[in-house]
Computed example of a mutant assay.
Amino acid sequence: MTTAHPRLSINQATIKYANLADALQLTATAGVQSIGLWREPVAEVGLQNATRMVADSGLRVSSLCRGGFFTAFEGPARRAAIDENRRAIDESAALAAAGAAGSAPVLVLVAGGLPDRSTDLIGARSRVAEAIAELVPDAQAAGVTLAIEPLHPMYAADRAVISTLGQALDIAEPFPASSVGVVVDTFHIWWDPEVLTQIERAGAAGRIASYQVCDFLTPIPSDALLARGMMGDGHVDFRSLTRAITATGYAGDVEVEIFNAEIWDTEPAEVVARTVDAFAACIPLALP
């Protein structure tokens, strides 16, 4: 097996059916030094146990997925979402503190889709910006970066009304870069004709909080969420995107995050090994 690049991070979504203990063990055994965590597996064992397990693993934590879902109209559901994000901020801080040196207290935010029976996309985006503004003091107090992740526009109705890196940067801009940044995810932004310009803009402002990679497959499956593939299996030009990221000075971990039924059904250790190989072949990062 190829030696894992020191900046490679295995996002837990790639090995979806592995519990937290197994995900940590599989990642470390493969020589990968970093892991991207999800809140659900953390909740299964409890935050206190999860932080101990992370500390014992010796791995860095590259991010925590996910917060967000901010598009509800004002009322109990919106208040509950804001409160849930405050809990997620605290979890992100605790897990990063438990991780090895270089861990990133980054909370990935997915904006949320249109509320039921609403077609007001502009209003929904405004409510996302308002929610983030409300959470910035909490993020600053915890030392956590809120990382806005634009999702491919095919998800605008049901998952994320923020579809481009430019839109995410516009929301982030009023706040310190240490508090609000963006996620550059190749699956979601590869198609954007402005993507290289917006990566440069994000880098100049110091707002690239996370770089996530996976491929874009066609034909798109009936569940469009599962159209992600292993690097090299689809249509994404990883070399141009990674070179643009590198040119900004971004030196953080690079997460492989794949939602794909066939990959999920494969033995997790095999998936991790394949990820190490595909990363080495497709992601042009210089060794330190």
Rank of each mutant, 00 (worst) to 15 (best):
M1F: 06
H5G: 04
P6I: 05
R7Y: 10
L8G: 08
I10D: 01
T14D: 02
I15M: 10
A18I: 10
L20W: 02
L20D: 02
D22H: 01
L24K: 10
S34Q: 05
S34K: 04
I35K: 02
L37T: 07
P41Q: 01
E44N: 09
E44T: 08
G46Y: 00
L47C: 01
N49L: 01
N49H: 04
T51C: 04
A55N: 12
D56Y: 03
S57N: 05
G58E: 09
L59K: 08
L59C: 11
R60V: 03
V61L: 00
C65R: 01
R66H: 05
G67F: 01
A72C: 11
F73M: 14
R78V: 06
A80E: 12
A81W: 00
I82S: 05
N85V: 02
A88P: 00
L95S: 03
A96K: 02
A96P: 06
A96Q: 03
A100T: 02
A100F: 00
A101Y: 03
G102Q: 06
S103Q: 07
P105M: 04
V106T: 13
V106I: 15
L107T: 02
L107I: 01
L107F: 03
A111C: 13
L114A: 13
L114N: 12
R117W: 04
S118E: 14
T119D: 15
T119A: 15
I122R: 15
G123Y: 08
V128A: 04
A129T: 13
A133K: 12
E134L: 14
E134T: 14
P137R: 12
A142S: 08
I148M: 11
I148C: 09
E149L: 02
E149H: 03
P153L: 13
A156H: 13
V161S: 10
A168Y: 09
L169H: 09
L169N: 06
E173K: 14
P174Y: 07
P174E: 07
P176D: 10
P176K: 07
S179L: 02
S179E: 05
V182M: 07
V182H: 05
V182R: 08
V182Y: 03
D185T: 03
F187Y: 15
F187A: 08
H188Y: 13
H188M: 11
H188L: 09
I189K: 09
I189L: 15
D192R: 07
D192Y: 06
P193K: 13
E194V: 01
L196N: 05
T197W: 05
A204P: 00
A204F: 00
G206H: 06
R207I: 07
R207W: 10
Y211V: 11
Q212H: 13
D215P: 06
D215E: 12
F216S: 14
L217V: 12
P219M: 12
I220M: 13
P221E: 14
A224N: 12
L225R: 03
L225P: 00
L226R: 14
A227G: 15
A227F: 11
A227L: 14
G232Y: 06
D233L: 06
D237H: 04
F238A: 10
S240K: 11
T242K: 12
A247K: 13
A247E: 13
T248S: 06
D253F: 03
I258S: 03
F259S: 05
N260S: 13
N260A: 14
E262M: 13
E262H: 15
I263A: 11
E270F: 06
E270H: 12
V272L: 09
V272E: 06
R274T: 15
A278Y: 05
A286F: 03
P288Q: 10
